[in-house]
Design a binder for these strands. Structure first.
Lengths: 142, 142
DNA sequence: ATCATTGCAAACACTTTGCATACGC
DNA sequence: GCGTATGCAAAGTGTTTGCAATGAT
């Protein structure tokens, strides 16, 4: 599930933005690269806690915040109460299934070339969230 | 600022969805109609507290939740920690200024006719959030 | 030895809930 | 009077912060 990133690629990415590639940070990056479901901090914590027994939620929050500040991951606000994170930084949209709650990426080719200016305002970034019924739910196996 | 809605229109709206038009509820609706800055619960509370001394935050939250369930207002998730609300239910996008934090509506005519289906998923609703520098901030008076 | 990272515990901020009072039909 | 709305206080939840222990160079 998801495209995996080599350890070297992850370390390079962290090095590039001046973040020391510690064990915890690498594991969080790896998790984000491999699990493209836009996990919450909680999900990351629960999953990695098994592999790293001393792992703490504080570290998850600290690290995600740091990675976001450095522009290596991006935070995604949804209508849920928890923030979701992703390491996919190519321009894309999101689809949220209102039935099964799945949240996945959408190619939005139109968006990449979307207006840089709209009504006189300078656009730096677009966030597109489509909500509806995903293919799986639609195809009956409710 | 904002288009105002007559008391009658507000009562009609509430009646239509089966919500009893109490004083507090009417004031909240009126505030949303008149202040199209997508206020938070806190903002609504602070403003109306002056006019209604016994006004409570619980009522704000209860009412907004009720209004949202009935489809009379919509909640808008942003990257801030507070939820923002609006009574403008016509399809539109949002612009968030990263400099002055203003959040305002955008006409997105393209969006109204946007795909009803994308990659096999049934789209019920689009949320578009453009982030950047708004016209005012751009025009120098930082 | 020094500086950064980790992680526990406590604090925080926003929102929800339990329940008693007050209101409207 | 009876059912709903209100609002206080307390609880809940996601996240941040203070700080001591640990780890890396």
């Amino acid at each position: 599930m998801g495209m995996s990133l080599s350890l070297k690629e992850i370390c390079d990415t962290l090095d590039r933005v001046g973040i020391r590639p510690t064990h915890q940070r690498i594991e969080i990056m790896k998790y984000l690269a491999e699990h493209r479901v836009h996990p919450t901090a909680e999900m990351i914590y629960t999953e990695l806690k098994e592999a790293i027994p001393t792992f703490s939620k504080t570290t998850v929050y600290n690290t995600l915040k740091l990675l976001e500040e450095k522009g290596v991951v991006s935070a995604l606000a949804t209508d849920e109460d928890q923030v979701r994170y992703e390491a996919n930084l190519t321009p894309h949209g999101h689809f949220k299934c209102v039935r099964c709650s799945a949240l996945f990426d959408l190619d939005l080719p139109a968006m990449a070339s979307a207006a840089q200016e709209i009504e006189g305002n300078l656009v730096l970034e677009y966030q597109v969230l489509a909500k509806g019924i995903c293919r799986q739910c639609r195809d009956g196996r409710d």
